[in-house]
Amino acid sequence: MANIPQEEYIFKTTSACAGCSSSLCLRHILKAAGPDSVLVVPACCTSVIQGIYPNTAFNIPVYNVAFAAAAAVASGMSTALRAAGRKTNVICYAGDGGTVDIGIQALSGALERGTDFLYICYDNEAYSNTGMQRSGGTPLGAATTTTPGGKTEGKKDLDLIVEAHDPPYMATACSAYPIDLYKKVEKALSIEGPTFIHILAPCPPGWRYPADKTVEMGKLAVRTGMWILYEREHGQLSISGPSKNAMRKPLPIEEYLEKQGRFKNIDQRSITVLQQQVERHMARIAREAEGIC
């Protein structure tokens, strides 16, 4: 942790839930970004945890915007700042709903236009801010308030969609690995053009596990292969350390599923489907890393 700056841009007065991993991630993201940064935040948990006017727990300009609008607002902001000769980092920090569902058109447009910005999706796999409704990011079998019997469809593959836009840099990260995240944010911000980081952000009330298990839940996601850490720089994929280790001998996904209340009623068939998806995904990523794809 020696290289991570001591400066704090998020104070201890946020109204985040106990064990909130997305605010933990944001703490490290802003340390990597530094003070010459603007955060663009669509409707999501982060819109709420800043605090209530006239107070804010964030010591950085935060531009709150409508749900579908983050990437487009960032597009205008970045273009205007660059036109004025300013290098200020423009960073979208959006949840999965605001990214894979309502915000995907604006994200796709901003990526396609080559907008100079960093888009970060913190994925807690549901509309957590409104109380855990199903999103396109919710995995198969997970119970939410709108899929009380468990989701019958799979998780939308956001990374494949983003990859199709061929951004100069994209990466995955997980709240349980803050140094990995920190380095990826640093690298993303050093590259001109649209860059993208997709973070798995476990959510205690949404996933129904005790608040003190947030780090463990992230580690289990990586160790089972449910989440793979990698980065793709100018088309070159490299698997990040924790996933390299995990992919040699991944844990069975049951070790991840059984610790979360949202999977309490998942059936064996869904577990098998999930396990097969994990294996296919690991194989695809491994092939790409070896240059066979």
Partner: peptide
């Protein structure tokens, strides 16, 4: 000139620019 992908984004981009 920002050739946005929709009118919602046209106004959103104007908002982002104007905010600076």
């Amino acid at each position: 000139y920002i050739p946005v992908e929709s009118e919602h984004s046209a106004m959103a981009a104007c908002i982002g620019a104007s905010a600076t």
